[in-house]
């Protein structure tokens, strides 16, 4: 009886200045999962709206990059994979995650700004916006990644036990993508400069990660510092899963994993701090 009354009188919602002190309210986000689903669907449908090739663009872009780089870096520049792996496949194994990561960063940066019409007028957990862009980007990634695996099989590459670690690498990539999206989405609102700096950052990521060169190009004693670029270690992990490179750099991978976790934690913390002011800043 008493419990009934308490249930009845419990406020549906309590609003205080403090709100959630450290983390965004995750149960709130989970409660809105249907909304996330709808927004992701909508985002995918509208992305290739009125594009003849549609979702195939998810394949075309990395393949084009692969061909161009094969010509300039491989044939003209003389870069090699560092082992028996064909250079084209070597490139594609990194380009597919790179495309995904770059896209998530770019879409994540505008995820909140593009929705100002909603943010000033209705409330739902703001964390939804970067989550939606990341999930929508993941669909493209899955398509490109399946294509890569088909290429891998068609080119009769040896399958090793390293493959078992692949889900781990994909998960790490996803975590990196979503944490950077979360972080950069609010950072862009606070400092509009980010929008202009971002293309350069993504470009730097391309040169600063072992995408078109093997990680052995960098002296091994600096690999743990290199891991401050979280994407470098993830590329290395992908390579290791597929090609079982003997020269795998564990310091690079562990260091990158740490950076990713730190980025994720700090990103959420910062997001929570900024999200209270979002409606006032936009």
């Amino acid at each position: 009886m008493a419990k009934d009354i308490i249930d009845h009188i419990k406020p549906h919602e309590v609003i205080t200045p403090i709100g959630s002190r450290f983390w965004p309210n995750f149960p709130d986000v989970w409660r809105q999962r249907e909304l996330v689903k709808m927004l992701v669907q909508k985002s995918i449908n509208s992305r290739y709206h009125q594009a003849i090739l549609g979702i195939f663009w998810a394949l075309i872009t990395p393949v084009c990059y692969m061909v161009i780089m094969n010509v300039f870096f491989g044939l003209l520049g003389g870069f090699k994979s560092g082992d028996a792996t064909p250079y084209s496949l070597f490139l594609l194994s990194a380009l597919v995650p790179y495309q995904y990561f770059g896209k998530c960063l770019g879409d994540g940066a505008t995820s909140i700004i593009n929705n100002e019409a909603l943010i000033g007028k209705v409330y739902f957990p703001r964390l939804i916006f970067p989550i939606v862009t990341t999930l929508a980007g993941t669909v493209d990634f899955v398509i490109a990644f399946v294509f890569f695996i088909i290429c891998f099989v068609v080119m009769q590459q040896p399958l090793g036990w390293h493959m078992l670690a692949l889900p781990g690498a994909v998960l790490a990539l996803f975590i990196l993508a979503i944490s950077s999206s979360v972080f950069i989405s609010v950072l862009t609102v606070k400092y509009r400069d980010v929008r202009y700096a971002l293309p350069t950052i993504i470009q730097l990521m391309f040169f600063g990660s072992p995408i078109w060169y093997p990680s052995t190009l960098m002296p091994a004693q600096y690999h743990w510092v290199w891991g401050l670029n979280p994407f470098a270690g993830i590329v290395e992990a992908f390579r290791w899963c597929f090609f079982g490179t003997e020269t795998v750099s564990l310091p690079l991978i562990t260091s990158s994993a740490c950076t990713t976790v730190l980025l994720g934690v700090f990103g959420l913390f910062y997001f929570n701090k900024i999200q209270r002011q979002l409606a006032d800043m936009i």
């Binding site: 406020p11 309590v14 409330y123 409606a279």
Partner: peptide, 12 residues
Amino acid sequence: KVTHPTAGRIEV
């Protein structure tokens, strides 16, 4: 909840 209060408390 569109904007965040500076002080006080609201129960809904």
